[in-house]
Computed example of a mutant assay.
Amino acid sequence: MTSSRPPVSYDDAARLYCIIFLVLIVLLGSFTNDEYLIKKINPAVGQACDEIYVVGEGETVHTISDKCGDPFIVEENPHIHDPDDVFPGLVIKITPSGRRN
């Protein structure tokens, strides 16, 4: 008794595997979070920082703002009169943009 199905060619099998692979990539891409991808590519961007932050050696208001995701550090910390006048050990309040009211 012989089979009634025609044999599958290598081209058809390769095409099928490519389609399955592309569908999986699209599905996996729809489940990822853009913020996760940004942090994965550049972990220093948007890191979660504690609400109370102690300035470290070599840090500036700009670098802390980028690191913690808070563009309003000077406005929220009235004791910082000059953004260029931060020093190691200075305590500042951090409110990342995602937690703003």
Rank of each mutant, 00 (worst) to 15 (best):
T2V: 06
T2M: 03
S4T: 11
S9M: 04
Y10L: 00
Y10E: 00
D11R: 15
D12G: 01
A13P: 00
I20S: 08
F21T: 06
L22R: 12
L22E: 09
L24E: 05
L24A: 13
L24H: 13
L24D: 01
I25A: 12
V26G: 08
V26Q: 06
V26T: 11
L28F: 15
G29A: 10
F31E: 06
T32D: 04
E35K: 15
L37R: 11
K40W: 13
I41S: 09
I41Y: 14
A44D: 13
G46W: 05
Q47C: 00
A48P: 02
C49S: 03
C49Y: 04
D50C: 00
I52V: 14
Y53G: 01
V55F: 03
E57P: 08
G58Y: 05
G58W: 03
E59S: 02
E59G: 02
E59L: 03
V61N: 03
T63F: 07
S65M: 04
S65D: 11
G69I: 02
D70V: 03
P71G: 02
P71C: 01
I73D: 01
V74P: 04
E76V: 00
N77T: 03
H79A: 08
H79Q: 12
I80A: 04
H81V: 09
D82K: 08
D84G: 13
L90A: 12
V91F: 05
I92V: 11
K93A: 10
K93C: 03
P96N: 02
S97G: 03
